[in-house]
Design a protein around this nucleic acid. Sequence first.
DNA 1: CCAATCGCTTTACAAAGTAAAGTGCCGGGA
DNA 2: TCCCGGCACTTTACTTTGTAAAGCGATTGG
Lengths: 191, 191
Amino acid sequence: MSDTPTRLLDAVDAVIAEHGPSGVTVRRVGTQAGLSHTAAAHYFGDKPGLFTAYLTRAYDRVGAAIEDAGAATDDPHQAMLDAAAAYARFALQEPSAFSVLQRLELTRVDTPELWRARERAYFGIDAILLRQQATGWAADRNIADLIATTWAFVHGFVELWVSGPLAAPYDGQELEPTLRRVFADLISALA
Amino acid sequence: MSDTPTRLLDAVDAVIAEHGPSGVTVRRVGTQAGLSHTAAAHYFGDKPGLFTAYLTRAYDRVGAAIEDAGAATDDPHQAMLDAAAAYARFALQEPSAFSVLQRLELTRVDTPELWRARERAYFGIDAILLRQQATGWAADRNIADLIATTWAFVHGFVELWVSGPLAAPYDGQELEPTLRRVFADLISALA
DNA sequence: CCAATCGCTTTACAAAGTAAAGTGCCGGGA
DNA sequence: TCCCGGCACTTTACTTTGTAAAGCGATTGG
């Protein structure tokens, strides 16, 4: 009994699954949802509006996954690894959403809702890192640099993995355990 | 006196500069190059073909910049920083090309030319890292993990920078010196 | 009971992707 | 010299897509 905008966003997932990320069409999304071909435009204004709403929901999901990772354990070190794994899982399980995360030019970047959702995800990472540093880890390092370094690493690793370059060196391995292992090495190197 | 395909790829740059990455149109590229609206399709087959050729040229350029960074100094540590800086400069100076680097779904990923160009860029990084490790740096670390970690970090850092998230924490600073500083910290942490 | 509003659809049109046929030019053989 | 085949594009034509605008039936407040 979900409402129509939600059904339309679900239809985006279905369309990406069937036709790929660049096969997403405002018209197709409408008809996929069982509505007219202008339904998506009616609700979201235009194509960037549709993508913005879709991306906002995607950030909300990954942000929630990161928050869950932080809340599930008292050990910040474990939480960092879990949050990274959540990000990786998100990229693999919802490749549609993840691919759109990288297509900001198709969205209205200045939408407040989108900002809020992005900041939610980023704030979850910050919180975990601050807790980890409070345990004495990397105590003498600049916190802003620490945050940037770990973000950049995790995001870059996942992206290079799904877009191909890391497939060859880690042939046959799986993303999540590999990321956990390499990230753990990085964390201990930074200590 | 450049040939027509080259002029068309230059026209892609001009179109992106004028209309943004999503304003690139096969027809517009043709007319921008002073040709008919089907000229680009004629030479590159279709839109993915055009993007593939454009992306191949972009990878060739960034690969050459990385090779130059490696060749310009005997100090591998310096070469690593220079290569990272070259990547950052590329992202800033050719935002058009960099934005397409992230839009692989618009390209024909399986094109051999594109593979070759990508591998050229990656191989340049590998070579520098191997030289650096030969100096004793991080000698006991798995070379594949080292490569993945530094790639992921540099790529992720630049991407988060240009797409927004790092703008707030590093407000008012510039990408290249910031990346050099944070990357140098990472290198010494990994040592 | 009725009209305004809601939630969508229908209609309409311009821009863009792309297939296919056309056109002028240039070089090489009879 | 003439012709003819191919090269380098252009012209034409058709379909899909984005999007504006008007329409239309069902609810709902007065």
